[in-house]
């Protein structure tokens, strides 16, 4: 899988942990399933130095909550998120997806898994055959336990377009 960062003076030897608001599976190391999504992300969001770096790594997904390809896991994840969301809505709060996931992480629920794999919608125009019809999943893995990551190496460097 692939990890995107801006080019830095020193090559990374480990993925950078992310805790931004748009890291909606909570604080984790994020990897892309498809290389072209990693590149697209580099062009979109890693432009600070004018170049991005794509790293690749082997990831042991044996203990991943796979909400993308596993129906049971997806329905399980969805159900739990909805439970917490419902309670918070009763309290008059509108949580973000990140906040909901962080709750489960901090209560040592999601941390039973080495990570969570999920998909969202990409606006990468290369994926559209018919305008606005996204045919390809944009899949990410949020890794909570870094020991499942191995052979983390620079894949290539790209110039931001």
């Amino acid at each position: 899988m692939f990890h995107t960062q801006e080019r830095r003076d020193v090559r990374l030897t480990k993925a950078v942990e992310c805790s931004r608001d748009n890291a909606w599976l909570g604080t984790a190391w994020y990897f892309w399933y498809h290389e072209d999504d990693a590149i697209s992300w580099g062009n979109k969001s890693k432009k600070r130095t004018g170049y991005y770096e794509i790293y690749e790594a082997d990831i042991n997904r044996e203990n991943i909550l796979d909400t993308v390809f596993n129906e049971e896991s997806y329905l399980f994840w969805l159900k739990q998120i909805e439970k917490v969301k419902k309670i918070l809505l009763m309290a008059g709060e509108k949580p973000t997806l990140k906040e909901l996931n962080e709750y489960f992480k901090r209560k040592d629920i999601w941390t039973r898994f080495s990570g969570v794999m999920f998909q969202d919608i990409s606006f990468n125009a290369d994926y559209f055959i018919i305008k606005y019809f996204q045919y390809k999943k944009r899949i990410q893995l949020a890794v909570y336990d870094y020991s499942i990551v191995s052979n983390f190496n620079l894949h290539f460097e790209g110039k931001c377009t």
């Binding site: 917490v84 309670i87 918070l88 309290a91 008059g92 709060e93 906040e99 709750y103």
Partner: peptide, 17 residues
């Protein structure tokens, strides 16, 4: 998870949030 959420109320979850 259900046991955990049994211990929570809207107020406790709001406080956490």
């Amino acid at each position: 998870i259900d046991a955990l959420l049994e211990t929570e109320t809207p107020e406790t979850l709001k406080k956490w949030l």
